[in-house]
Write a protein that binds this DNA or RNA. Sequence first.
DNA 1: GTTAGATACTTTAGACTTAAAGTATCTCGC
DNA 2: GCGAGATACTTTAAGTCTAAAGTATCTAAC
Lengths: 162, 162
Amino acid sequence: MDRERGHEDSDHLQLRAWLRLLTCTNLIETRVRGGLRETWNITLPRFDLLSQLHRAGDDGLTMGDLSRAMMVSAGNVTGLVEALVGEGLVRRTTSAADRRQSRVRLTQAGKRGFEAMLPEHERWIDEAFAGLDRGDLKRLLELLAKLKQSAKAAERGGKEAA
Amino acid sequence: MDRERGHEDSDHLQLRAWLRLLTCTNLIETRVRGGLRETWNITLPRFDLLSQLHRAGDDGLTMGDLSRAMMVSAGNVTGLVEALVGEGLVRRTTSAADRRQSRVRLTQAGKRGFEAMLPEHERWIDEAFAGLDRGDLKRLLELLAKLKQSAKAAERGGKEAA
DNA sequence: GTTAGATACTTTAGACTTAAAGTATCTCGC
DNA sequence: GCGAGATACTTTAAGTCTAAAGTATCTAAC
């Protein structure tokens, strides 16, 4: 038996990693949120929604697509889309094939507006990660990919209960 | 000149790392939030506040300490503490030395309650990180420490603007 | 001692978020 | 065709969160 082994169970590496992950996310999110508000007077969730639509292209996304992509509840998406429609940044049409669905797209104003914000948004992110070199970034990406898979697996495990 | 170099500027490693970081945080946070609600009918911010007080020990923390530790606004802390006082989990006293300050502590019920939740909370975190071995966890902790410093530096840079 | 400014906290208005219940529509077996 | 159940979305109630303005108290220069 390895004398040192006992210690391994009580150094709480997972918990420490989780807390540090949260701290990093909070720091960066606070920076981005503040920048978006000060520079374009837009909120982070609205920016995020525009971003998903921009990535999706001309066909747009359904409400359900948005909910999954943004990892928020369907009710939340309803409110955000309403707000953005009100601001003229987003357009919403009922699907002809399935009248329960609606399809959400950027308007021209929404596309132009989002593309204007994009470079500075990326600059804020780049600044936050400036202390990491390319090797660090690649290792971090790999570890986070692993964590993402692991967390997804745990999520299912928790729901289905074996 | 390295032909490959040009590509380095446009692979958006930082942005990809940020999005993946957010995904991981969301996944784990959703799991923990759901567990806390289903198992003890408590919210994550309240659990977090109890956690900070538990770590602080018998002297408790001021409202400002809590705000900084939890990385949320002072007004937010006011509401959370009120709720927890109402539930009898937390006690609040005005500081004699400085009557602007108050000091917040766990009640006996709060301490017992929190300590009852602690092991299962840690189990959820352990499960989320189960796919990472000790080496992975140590590398992740290191990279996140670096990122934390970097993000803090960027935060200051953004505010002070040289 | 007064007072100008700083500090600790609260209040307010508005936005975000969720879980749960509700509505409308679709699908599929019969 | 016709339900029964599934699916897409909305509504509601309650909680979280922030920025900004406001209150109370302290500090320090004079």
